[in-house]
């Protein structure tokens, strides 16, 4: 039940965000909104990276090392090949092997 409510909230907010400009904006986009449109997405991606890694205990090598190596694999592959799908798949694989077979 609680899960259904949360899914409904996620759907409603997402839909609202997509429709709002069509309902509200007439003519020019306000400069502050345009500014946020430029700077917010990269900042939020940064926030989500930290969010994803929040439960990693830095003092515990069996958590820290897979996370570090997985991250390094994604960053390295992305910088090298610029193919997000490849980076995600390979990074996840590296992490899974590390947590299942090594640590």
């Amino acid at each position: 039940m609680r899960a259904a409510v949360l899914v409904a909230v996620m759907a409603a907010v997402t839909i609202l965000l997509r429709f709002l400009p069509f309902l509200l904006i007439r003519g020019e986009t306000p400069p502050y909104i345009a500014y946020l449109g430029r700077v917010l997405p990269p900042a939020i991606i940064g926030m989500l990276v930290i969010y994803c890694l929040k439960d990693v205990q830095p003092g515990d090598p069996s958590q820290l090392l897979p996370a570090l190596l997985g991250t390094a694999a994604v960053v390295g592959l992305q910088a090298w090949k610029r193919n997000s799908l490849l980076s995600i798949l390979a990074g996840t694989l590296v992490y899974m092997v590390l947590v299942q077979a090594v640590f």
């Binding site: 996370a67 997985g70 990074g91 992490y95």
Partner: peptide
């Protein structure tokens, strides 16, 4: 086990691409 890293990887890849 460890599949949850796909979400982390998704955002790290976006972050890296954005950075580049």
């Amino acid at each position: 086990k460890g599949i949850e890293f796909s979400m982390t990887a998704l955002f790290i890849a976006s972050f890296t691409e954005q950075w580049l």
